[in-house]
Write a protein that binds this DNA or RNA. Structure first.
Length: 424
RNA sequence: GGAAAGUUGGCAGAGUGGUCGAAUGCGGCGGUCUUGAAAACCGUUGAUCUUCACGGGUCCGGGGGUUCGAAUCCCUCACUUUCCGCCA
């Protein structure tokens, strides 16, 4: 969440930036934050004074008892009663204001970076880079879902029976392709300097809140109410939370981690052809990269992450483009997001396969993730993450783009992992 | 799942109702000494809110309670360890 001190000192700027995200109640909410904060600080001062007085009296009473002056002590005790009444009342008021302020702050999204274009929807995203050649497919070329059943590598029907729509069963060479991609992505991340971790696939409420899934996206996560857990929608959640409530040494930065995990998303509200085949699943595999750095260097880190993702797509021989998301299409918590899309030649459409973002201090303020700068002052760090990569749409594009009459070609970089040059 | 014992600063570990944000040791940082280093010695070393500042408040796993006063007593939740049970 945003820092109150920043909002206080940059009211107009904050309102202007929130406007880029098409956040409608920007002005009223920002002003409400400022007034609640003023109230909070006034209450705190009053409360502190009363507590100071009560502490002073308590010490005095202690001294008097030690000196055997019980009568005088009793006299002072009577006075503390008054303090207690006031303390209780003010304490309740203070807690109420503080809670209200916190809820309000949680409802305000991150500010978009200056580079973020204005816009309402995906239509307004800015294409900043394109690479690769869109392949000419042979006459009988088909979409990946047809290829999946033709070669019997991914069974959507079977998944329907066992669980429901969006939980496919990967079979034989399909399962092997999954493993190949996961290992390929992890090895490549290792080469780029990311340290591998294997996080839990369920997180508690505090973790989901810290990275911003709660309260914003509660309905998008599968939950386990009996234990108060949530199935992770991305490894970003557990991996970033490794660093919750920590103060890093500046010499430890940048931190760069990668993690393979399965991801679980309810995708409530999705429908139509977008959900066909591998385009949108409830359970899928992804290798995530997470970075933590100082505000001075986080944008260098973002470039590094983008280059890493571009390198993966290049090695998979897939045509791709990079979009800079407009304010209206960005996530609640992001300051800037670059989406990577690959062209799916049989579906004849671009598929989002990666999203690389800098959250600046928005997540770290919730996480209480800080570092000591060169002056030994505690500062909020910047957090970044990206997919490198999510499997299903990569598989869709691989199958479609590399298909030929009697099989599917496996890109060179993947052959050693897959153990064959083709699927047939 | 049952039983017991625990949770204190970066770490180890004292502290069972008052002057305790907290002994001591280790580690860290600064210094003396040294050609340099080690050793020794001296000093320093938690976080957070508020204030221009002085100062004040809060934090001993989380939450609540008792008391004039709680790290210390009570309740509750979480976690850890050990034993038993179950089990990949």
């Amino acid at each position: 969440m945003l820092q109150v001190s920043f909002i206080r000192e940059n009211r107009d700027f904050v309102i202007e930036r929130l406007g880029v995200k098409n956040f409608s109640e920007a002005e009223s909410k920002v002003d409400k934050v400022i007034s609640l904060d003023n109230e909070r600080r006034t209450k705190q001062t009053e409360l502190d004074n009363i507590k100071a007085e009560a502490n002073r009296l308590a010490k005095e009473i202690g001294m008097l008892f030690k000196q055997g002056k019980a009568a005088e002590a009793e006299e002072l005790k009577a006075r503390t009663a008054e303090c207690k009444v006031q303390e209780k009342e003010l304490g309740e008021q203070f807690a109420k204001v503080e809670a209200e302020l916190k809820d309000l702050l949680l409802s305000i999204p991150n500010l978009p970076n200056q580079a973020v274009p204005r816009g309402k929807s995906a239509e307004d995203n800015e294409i900043v880079y394109e690479e690769g050649v869109i392949p000419e497919l042979h006459a009988g070329a088909v979409e990946h879902w047809t290829l999946c059943s033709k070669y019997d590598i991914i069974d959507f029907e079977l998944g329907n029976k066992i669980t429901g729509a969006g939980f496919p069963v990967y079979k034989s060479q399909g399962a092997k392709l999954q493993r190949a991609l996961i290992n390929f992505f992890l090895d490549e991340a290792g080469k780029s300097g990311f340290t591998e971790v294997q996080p839990p696939l369920m997180v508690n409420e505090a973790s989901a809140l810290a990275t911003g899934q709660l309260p914003d996206k509660e309905g998008q996560m599968y939950s386990v109410p009996l234990d108060g857990f949530y199935m992770i929608p991305t490894a970003e959640v557990p991996v970033t939370n490794i660093f919750r409530d920590t103060i890093q040494k500046q010499s430890n930065l940048p931190i760069a981690c990668c993690a393979y995990s399965q991801c679980f998303r309810r995708e409530a509200g999705s429908y139509g052809k977008d959900v066909r085949g591998l385009n949108r699943l409830h359970q899928f595999d992804k290798v995530e990269i997470v970075c933590i750095d100082t505000p001075e260097h986080s944008y260098e880190q973002l470039e590094m992450m983008k280059n890493h993702v571009a390198g993966l797509l290049r090695k998979l021989e897939l045509p791709f483009r990079i979009l800079r998301l407009c304010g209206g299409d960005m996530s609640f918590t992001s300051a800037i997001t670059y989406d990577f899309e690959v062209y799916s030649a049989a579906q004849k459409r671009w598929l989002e396969v990666s999203s690389v973002s800098n959250f600046e201090t928005y997540q770290s303020n919730r996480l209480k993730l800080r570092y000591k700068d060169e002056n030994n002052k505690t500062q909020l760090a910047h957090t970044l993450n990206g997919s490198a990569l999510a499997l299903p749409r990569i598989v869709a594009a691989l199958l479609e783009n590399h298909q030929f009459e009697s099989g599917i070609r496996i890109p060179k970089a993947l052959q050693a992992y897959f153990g064959a040059e083709t699927i047939f």
